[in-house]
């Protein structure tokens, strides 16, 4: 018999599929790429944990068949930090949206990047608060319309790769939901990277962002990404600003080595306590 089963089935909680994301939403593609990255690396599923915040992307934790936690709004990174310190041998992935990570949880992001916590942060950026009805997000480009900016946005948005890089992240990349192979490779690099790795995934939001701005459907946004994305690996993230329907610079911006928080913690406590110091988490913790 032909195996009539989707290859992603072992990585997904199939009892929860179909998911709640709208038709032509890009979050499903990001999840698919992440599942492919897990498969590519042959990481045992019990060694991975996903932490999500609130929002459309916050639902990812519920659909992946790994240890997962759906935290309160904006608090995915603090929860993941605690999880990493308690179980240093696990790979902790924060999968959340732009509003959750950068508006409500903005400070947590900055400080986790400053400490170089050993986390992989995947931010699905759809430029708007999707689940609550399309309010202005800190990533909404200038002049874009949202429910709370019906005459066009006049606030400067965040440049997420620049923010992450300037706070000290060791791996910073940006791709769109269209760059599936590059996104998958980037995710597996980030999973194997020691220290704070950040990937921004630009995804279409058809129901609020595209509809409010008269941009058609998510498929039209995908075609827009196809025509207007410029791959510039190693570009200065400062120049990777996104304007309303302007050219999008994608690529791997930062990939450097730096001692992580756990490394520094072991060195510092060893210096202070000497032989009395026993690393938490056994031998794995000292690595």
């Amino acid at each position: 018999m032909i195996t009539k089963e989707h290859p992603m089935t072992p990585l997904l909680r199939m009892d929860r599929i179909p998911h709640i994301w709208c038709p032509t939403c890009g979050i499903g593609t990001a999840v698919s790429c992440f599942a492919a990255a897990l498969k590519q690396n042959e990481i045992p599923l019990e060694k991975v944990a996903i932490v999500s915040g609130i929002g459309c992307t916050g639902r990812v934790a519920g659909y992946m068949k790994v240890d997962s936690f759906h935290t309160t709004h904006g608090r995915a990174i603090p929860f993941a930090t605690g999880l990493k310190l308690a179980r240093p041998e696990m790979k902790i992935v924060v999968f959340s949206g732009d509003g959750d990570l950068f508006a409500i949880g903005g400070n947590h992001f900055i400080h986790a990047a400053r400490r170089n916590m050993d986390l992989t942060v995947i931010c699905v950026n759809n430029f708007i608060y999707g689940m609550t009805g399309g309010q202005l997000a800190p990533t909404t480009p200038l002049s874009a319309k949202s429910t709370t900016s019906p005459y066009g946005n006049y606030e400067h948005p965040f440049n997420l790769p620049h923010l992450a890089a300037s706070c000290g992240a060791t791996y910073v990349a940006r791709w769109t939901a269209l760059h599936i192979r590059r996104l998958t490779n980037s995710m597996s690099e980030a999973l194997n990277k020691k220290g704070f790795s950040f990937i921004e995934v630009i995804a279409p939001c058809s129901t609020v962002y595209a509809r409010r701005n008269r941009l058609g459907s998510g498929l039209d946004l995908m075609k827009f990404y196809h025509d207007n994305c410029e791959i510039k690996n190693g570009a200065n993230p400062e120049e990777a600003d996104i304007g309303f329907q302007s050219k999008i610079i994608v690529g791997k911006f930062v990939d450097k080595e730096k001692p992580s928080f756990i490394d520094n913690m072991h060195v510092g406590l060893k210096r202070a306590l000497g032989d009395k110091y026993i690393p938490y988490g056994g031998d794995d913790g000292a690595k």
Partner: peptide
């Protein structure tokens, strides 16, 4: 298979 947001298509 990779781009489908619904996990609804695959190739063998």
């Amino acid at each position: 298979e990779m781009i489908c947001p619904e996990f609804a298509i695959y190739c063998l």
